Simulated scan of single mutants.
Amino acid sequence: MTKQSKPSSSTPLRLLIVEDDVALANSIIEWFELDGHSCDYVADGKAAISLLSRVDFDVILLDVSLPYIDGLEVARRLRQVGNSTPILMLTARDAIEDRVTGLDSGADDYVVKPFALIEVSARVRVLSKRRTGEVQRLSIGSLELLLDEHRVFREGQEIDLSPIGWRLIETLARSCPNSVDRETLSFAAWHDEPPETNNLKVQMFKLRKAIDKPFKSSVIETVKGRGYRLLAKGTPND
């Protein structure tokens, strides 16, 4: 976990921290409370479910490995009873299968330990806005995504994408400015039934043709050895 300088304060939130590592939990609580948020804390899944049956929170920060009831089962039970509170999963497991399992259990996002608190803070802000419906569009430089309508614009011009193209650009946009690895993009596009290994390359070529070719600059960048990312300021096309 890395501490960094804090961004400016945002709207105060009520957060639930569910983490059995007391030292880590204290660091998270200190970080958020210094930014004006209030934090409740429990150290196991059973206590989390009990508290959440009585108290509403804006965002839940939920560890995967917990005593009594693990974080995956906590998330499943919350969703089964209709609790829609955004969940940010805290996990030491970074394999794509583990990420998928967490999202399938009901988590909205995940962050892998060790993490930077400034990144956790940013993800919490996004999740809190998503619940209230504030996040319906993403703007990255000249690119704009209308999330609820599955529409993409660049420089005010609407771009026609296939369903796979939409899922790829949405995944890149939600992760911007970070890169997205090929496994994550493949899962976003095809879920549990990926096609031939080179098909992602084909789909990314089509996406670039739609997003970049008609314009003077390219906003989709290949990150060697990792995957792809979106650039707020594009690089000039040849």
Rank of each mutant, 00 (worst) to 15 (best):
T2V: 13
K3S: 10
Q4V: 10
Q4A: 15
K6M: 12
I17N: 04
D20E: 11
A25L: 04
A25H: 02
S27N: 13
W31G: 00
W31F: 13
E33F: 05
D35S: 15
S38M: 09
V42Q: 03
D44Y: 06
S53P: 01
R54S: 05
L62C: 01
V64G: 06
V64I: 15
S65W: 07
L66M: 11
Y68P: 00
D70I: 07
A75E: 03
R76A: 01
L78Y: 00
R79P: 11
N83A: 01
T85D: 01
L88F: 11
L88K: 12
T91L: 04
R93K: 13
I96R: 15
I96P: 02
E97G: 06
G102T: 01
D104M: 12
D104I: 08
S105A: 15
S105W: 00
G106A: 06
Y110C: 06
V112N: 03
V112Q: 04
A116T: 09
A116N: 12
I118R: 13
I118G: 03
V120N: 03
V126K: 09
R131E: 11
T132C: 11
R137Q: 15
R137K: 15
F153Q: 04
R154Q: 04
I169S: 00
S179R: 03
S179Y: 12
D181K: 03
E183R: 13
T184R: 14
A189G: 10
A189D: 07
A189Q: 04
W190S: 11
E193C: 14
L207R: 02
K209W: 04
A210C: 11
I211T: 09
P214E: 08
K216Q: 14
K216T: 14
E221M: 08
V223Y: 06
G227H: 01
A232H: 09
